[in-house]
Computed example of a mutant assay.
Amino acid sequence: MTNKPEGVIGITDNIEERIKEHKLKEYPKSFTAKYNCDKLIYFEVFENGNES
């Protein structure tokens, strides 16, 4: 998630729920809420998070 062309990398096993959490700022003290990062710019699907 980002608010600019450069972003922060994260991993999740439920992309739909994670995007919803970011958009609704469910964790108001989080980095993405603090800096208003609410745009998904890229994602990849992996069988295992260790593959990323």
Rank of each mutant, 00 (worst) to 15 (best):
S30Y: 04
A33S: 15
D13W: 01
K25H: 13
N36K: 15
K39L: 13
N3T: 07
K20Y: 14
M1P: 04
I9K: 07
Y27F: 10
D13F: 01
S52N: 13
E21T: 06
R18H: 05
N36D: 15
N50D: 12
V45Q: 11
E44H: 10
E16K: 07
F43C: 04
K25L: 10
D13L: 00
S52K: 12
G49W: 15
V45R: 07
D13S: 06
E21V: 07
D13T: 07
P28W: 02
E44W: 09
K23R: 12
F46Y: 15
Y35T: 11
H22F: 05
K34N: 09
N14T: 01
T12G: 05
N48D: 15
T2R: 03
L40A: 03
V45N: 09
I15F: 06
I15M: 10
N36E: 14
E21L: 03
H22V: 06
T2L: 01
Y42H: 06
K23L: 13
E6R: 10
E16N: 09
K39A: 10
G49H: 15
K29G: 08
V8S: 13
E16P: 00
F46R: 05
K29C: 08
K4M: 07
D13C: 08
K4W: 02
K39T: 12
P5E: 09
V45E: 15
N14M: 05
P5V: 06
F31C: 01
F43N: 06
G10S: 12
L40T: 11
N36C: 10
K34H: 09
I9G: 01
P5C: 05
Y27I: 14
E44A: 14
S30C: 05
C37Q: 14
K20H: 11
E51T: 02
F46H: 14
T2K: 02
I19L: 13
E44D: 14
G49Y: 15
G10Q: 08
H22A: 12
L24C: 07
N36V: 12
E21C: 02
K4Y: 11
I19V: 09
I15L: 15
E44Q: 14
L40C: 03
I41H: 07
G10E: 02
I41A: 07
K4C: 08
E6H: 13
T12I: 06
E16G: 00
L40R: 04
F46A: 04
R18M: 00
S30G: 08
T2V: 06
M1G: 15
I19T: 04
E26T: 11
E44T: 12
G10K: 07
K25C: 12
G7N: 05
N3A: 15
T12N: 01
V8F: 05
H22N: 05
K23Q: 11
V45K: 15
Y35Q: 06
K20L: 09
V8C: 11
N14F: 03
E6I: 08
K23F: 09
K23M: 11
K25T: 09
E26L: 12
K4R: 08
N48A: 08
Y42S: 10
D38H: 03
M1L: 14
I11C: 09
E16V: 06
C37S: 04
E26K: 13
K23S: 02
Y42W: 04
